[in-house]
Amino acid sequence: MAINLQKGQTINLRKNDRGESIYDLSKVTIGLGWDVRKQGGFFGKIFGKEAAEYDLDAIAFLLDANGKVVNKGKSITSNGRQIRLYQGDVVYFNSMQHPSGHVWLTGDNRTGAGDGDDEQIIVKLDQLDEKYQKIVFIVSIYQGTKNNQHFGMIENAFIRAIDAKGKEITKFSLSGDASMNGKCSMVFAEAYRHNGDWKFRAIGEPHTTDNFVDILKKYS
């Protein structure tokens, strides 16, 4: 049975409570899901009208032993503003596969429509170079500030880890958290090496910015 994590809680991805290796970490899927809250009021109840589409993006930072993103990749700028990073240790919608080939984003869901995971980041933990000691998973609302959107308007937001055989290892839910009001980005969770194993920690640290590059500065 998968463990429903609370904020700050940590589990060992490889072993159960008895120290047994029960998960296949040759490939781990980090799944992100969300639903947009229906508009309230009389007409909202009658027509079940949905709010404007929300585009949540799953992002991964690969960190070294010092907790830093060493290779931020190549940068494209326009009018003096950085508009794209690629081929570095940041995996996101404009750079969907890590140069190692062991971490990749499966796609960019721009609405949250459908059941289950809306976006997935795949990680081959057992093949990842030792220089990578931690992977931080971020979620941001694309143009959330411009569109007056924030996490307080979203329901059923979760992140989960699934092993190579499809077994759900753990799940972390942020539904009904009032601290998400006005927040457009979040450090959701992290996977990190510890004594030869991989552990997974639920973080749930909100940020007002809708640009993950602002969060990346903390890890640079």
Rank of each mutant, 00 (worst) to 15 (best):
Q143A: 09
L128K: 03
T209M: 11
S185N: 12
G166F: 01
Q9S: 08
G166D: 03
N4I: 06
Y86A: 07
H207M: 14
F212R: 14
F158E: 05
I138A: 00
S95V: 04
A178R: 12
D129H: 04
G31M: 03
L63T: 00
D210K: 14
K131A: 04
F61H: 10
S175R: 10
A178H: 12
I83P: 00
A51Q: 15
A164I: 02
V69Q: 06
V136A: 04
L105D: 00
G8S: 10
M1V: 06
N147Q: 12
T29K: 11
F137T: 03
G112C: 01
R81H: 11
K49V: 09
K183F: 13
T145Q: 07
N12R: 10
E155G: 05
G116H: 01
K171R: 15
S100Q: 05
F61D: 10
N71L: 06
L13P: 00
D115E: 11
T77E: 06
I141T: 03
M153W: 07
A2P: 11
Q97S: 13
D210I: 15
A191D: 07
K74G: 07
T111Q: 06
E119M: 09
F61G: 13
T10C: 05
G114R: 09
G80L: 05
K49C: 09
K27M: 14
T10K: 10
N71D: 12
H98M: 06
I11N: 06
A164V: 02
K7Q: 14
K134G: 00
H194F: 15
R160L: 03
M153D: 13
G48Q: 14
V123G: 04
Q82F: 01
K171A: 10
K38W: 05
D115G: 10
R160Y: 01
S100G: 07
R193D: 04
A58Y: 02
I138W: 00
I215R: 15
T29Y: 10
V123L: 09
G40C: 05
E168I: 02
S179R: 15
T10M: 06
N71C: 07
P99E: 08
H102G: 01
L125N: 06
F93P: 03
D89H: 05
D126G: 03
K45E: 03
D108K: 09
D163C: 07
M186C: 12
N148D: 14
R201C: 13
T106R: 08
F61E: 08
E130P: 00
Y54V: 14
N16R: 09
H150A: 10
I3G: 00
V28F: 08
P206M: 12
N147A: 12
F200Y: 15
G73R: 01
S173L: 13
G48H: 14
K146G: 04
N94A: 13
A52E: 15
I138M: 02
I46S: 06
K134S: 01
E168P: 00
K199I: 06
V187L: 13
E190I: 04
D55T: 07
T145E: 08
D35Y: 03
K74E: 04
N148M: 08
I121S: 02
Y86G: 05
E119H: 12
F47K: 12
V123C: 11
I22T: 13
I11H: 07
Y192Q: 11
S26P: 01
Y86M: 06
N156V: 01
Y92N: 03
T106H: 05
A51F: 14
L125K: 09
